[in-house]
Amino acid sequence: MLTTKISGLELKNPLMLAAGIMGTTGGSLKRMARCGAGAVITKSIGIEPKPGHPNPTMVKLRCGYLNAMGLPNPSYKLFQPEIDEAKHAGVPVIASIFGVDASEFSVIAGAINADAFELNVSCPHAEGYGAEIGTDPALVEGITKAVKNATDAPVWVKLTPNVADITETGLAAQKGGADAVVAINTLRGMAIDIESGHPILGNRFGGLSGHGIKPVAVKCVHDLYSALDIPVIGCGGISGWEDVVEFIMAGARAVQIGSAVGDNINIFSDISSCLEAFLSLKLWTLDDIYGMVHEI
């Protein structure tokens, strides 16, 4: 009842593990797949090993989580065994990748074997990477095109909400040949320790995730669904099955869950069973509610 197809990938449910969560090791990805995720996305992988920003790298606030990990990763040269191990869990494994320019993205996509690629052009707190590229539609289009040329696997582009109009970068990704877009990455944010005046995050500022950003994400998905022909994958602040229904009604083909995994490692199976019960009660299918708000 929950099976979903997106850019050629068959998912047993539309709930994926978002990039950057439990995604550094094959063992942790496998655990999340076994906990019920329909697909898992790796930690973003770059060209060289990177330790990321100093701690604190994540802090829980009343409205969600603020983080600035700084793209820590062991580099694409060391990462294939982790993907291969994750594959043993039997769900699609999507490699999130980042680089400074089209050629770095292409090198990584050409060397890594994964079920799909998610281009991180949206991390808000790593100098020279992520959102510094992802706010420029021309760069997004160029990078997407280059990665499409480098691999036969489907290519998704994860968009930043830190722009005036997210459909501009969404359309650029589509023009570059993207098979889907993912919306949204975190919103730029900052927290200050009032006892000392120090910024709490080691990187001074970071990205906000969690409950507080959900309405922003739902609006972005809504707008992208209207503007694009390719599927939209929703992400941002999902912590319960109702949130998933809302995203799908806004126009998401599938969704990604991140921060909420911290407090509930079984969130994927919990949401799957509640989502199934809700659809049965309403006599709806996933297709029935897909983009429902646009019909009203």
Partner: peptide, 22 residues
């Protein structure tokens, strides 16, 4: 080695076990 310390990022995993949370 801990990063988030609250069971989200997975940096401290031993196989799938989160040392900080599990």
């Amino acid at each position: 080695y801990f990063k988030c310390g609250i069971g989200v990022c997975g940096a401290c995993c031993i196989d799938g076990l989160r040392v900080c949370k599990d």
